[in-house]
Amino acid sequence: MTDFDGYQDQLQSDAQFLCSDHRLDTELLDRLVLQLNRIYPQILSDKEAHRFRTLSVPTKVRLAELLKHLHGRGEDACHEFYRALHIHAEEVYSYLPTRVKRREMADTKPTNNVAVHQERSGLNQRGPTFFLSCFCFVVGIAILYYYGEAETLRCTGGFLHCSAERLSKNARCVLTSYVEVGMQK
């Protein structure tokens, strides 16, 4: 699927971009560290979070150490970092090299949209005009049934017989029997 099998590989590939991106400032790094510490203390303990939030160390150094630490913690830690980055800095997350590469691969991949649309609309193969004509036909029958008198049916009998020719066998039988009953009245 991609060159990157897991989040650890992605983090290793994205580390240089993350460390050089000017949008990842001290405030954003603090939010990421706090989320990892508060929501997932098994990933980032209080002591480790304090170390990565120390303002005496430059942001780029703290970020590089955090990324190295998360990479050492395993797949789940890297995954949670990406989730936190997506939540707090979507503009950075969407321009990560691995995300851009995935989008490019998805764009160049031949799509089977036609097959997907056919599966989704299996009942709608005849198109909207077919269903509109069926709706109009049913409305016409309903009007004839509720408001039609014997005189009306005698006048429209031939028309209804001709209209029934294009219908299915069951619909044709119903329509012609309705016409015949109406004409007998």
Rank of each mutant, 00 (worst) to 15 (best):
Arg31Cys: 11
Lys169Asp: 05
Leu167Ile: 06
Glu149Pro: 00
Leu66Arg: 00
Phe81Asp: 03
Gly6His: 07
Cys173Asp: 11
Lys60Met: 03
Glu90Ser: 12
Ala164Trp: 11
Gln184Pro: 01
Gln42Thr: 05
His161Asp: 12
Phe137Gln: 12
Thr152Leu: 09
Asp25Lys: 15
Val33Ile: 13
Arg172Ser: 13
Leu34Gly: 04
Thr59Phe: 05
Thr111Ala: 14
Asn37His: 13
Val33Tyr: 04
Val92Ser: 10
Thr156Asn: 12
Arg83Ser: 11
Ser133Asp: 10
Val100Met: 14
Asn112Met: 07
Arg53Asn: 01
Arg99Lys: 14
Ile43Met: 08
His117Val: 09
Ile87Leu: 12
Ile87Lys: 14
Leu55Cys: 06
Val92Trp: 10
Lys109Asp: 04
Arg99Pro: 03
Gly157Cys: 06
Leu36Thr: 05
His71Ser: 03
Met105Val: 10
Val114Cys: 05
Lys68Leu: 00
Gly140Arg: 10
Tyr147Thr: 00
Glu80Met: 03
Gln184Ile: 12
Leu160Gln: 04
Ser13Glu: 08
Lys185Ile: 08
Met1Ser: 03
Asn37Ala: 13
Arg154Ala: 13
Gly122Glu: 06
Asp76Ala: 06
Asp76Ile: 02
His69Leu: 02
Cys173Phe: 10
Lys68Asn: 05
Asp76Cys: 01
Lys68His: 00
Glu48Trp: 01
Arg103Ile: 14
Phe81Cys: 12
Cys19Ile: 06
Tyr93Cys: 15
Lys109Phe: 15
Cys173Ile: 10
Ile143Gly: 05
Leu36Val: 02
Leu18Ser: 01
Asn113Met: 10
Gly72Arg: 04
Phe131Gln: 10
Cys78His: 02
Leu175Pro: 02
Pro128Tyr: 11
Leu11Lys: 00
Glu180Trp: 11
Thr108Leu: 15
Ser168Glu: 14
Lys101Ala: 08
Leu153Met: 12
Gln16Met: 04
Arg73Leu: 02
Val139Asn: 13
Arg73Gln: 01
Phe130Pro: 05
Leu160Asp: 09
Ala164Lys: 08
Gln12Val: 13
Arg31Pro: 06
Leu132Trp: 10
Pro110Thr: 15
Ala49Lys: 02
Thr176Gly: 04
Cys134Arg: 15
Lys60Gly: 12
Arg51Thr: 07
Asp14Glu: 01
His88Trp: 14
Ala15Leu: 06
Val181Ile: 07
Ile141Pro: 00
Arg38Trp: 02
Thr129Ala: 11
Lys47Phe: 04
Asp107Glu: 15
Asp46Asn: 09
Ile43Asp: 04
Arg31Leu: 11
Val116Ile: 11
Ile87Ser: 05
His71Glu: 04
Cys78Phe: 00
Lys60Thr: 09
Gly148Arg: 04
Gln125Lys: 13
Gly72Ala: 11
Leu34Phe: 10
Met183Gln: 14
Gly74Gln: 06
Asn37Gly: 13
Leu32Gln: 13
Cys173Gly: 13
Cys162Gln: 14
Met1Phe: 03
Gly72Thr: 06
Phe137His: 12
Arg31Val: 07
Asp14Tyr: 00
Lys47Asp: 02
Gly182Thr: 02
Leu123Phe: 03
Leu44Gly: 00
Tyr178Ser: 08
Asp46Phe: 09
Gly127Val: 04
Leu66Lys: 00
Arg126Ile: 05
Asp21Cys: 09
Leu70Glu: 00
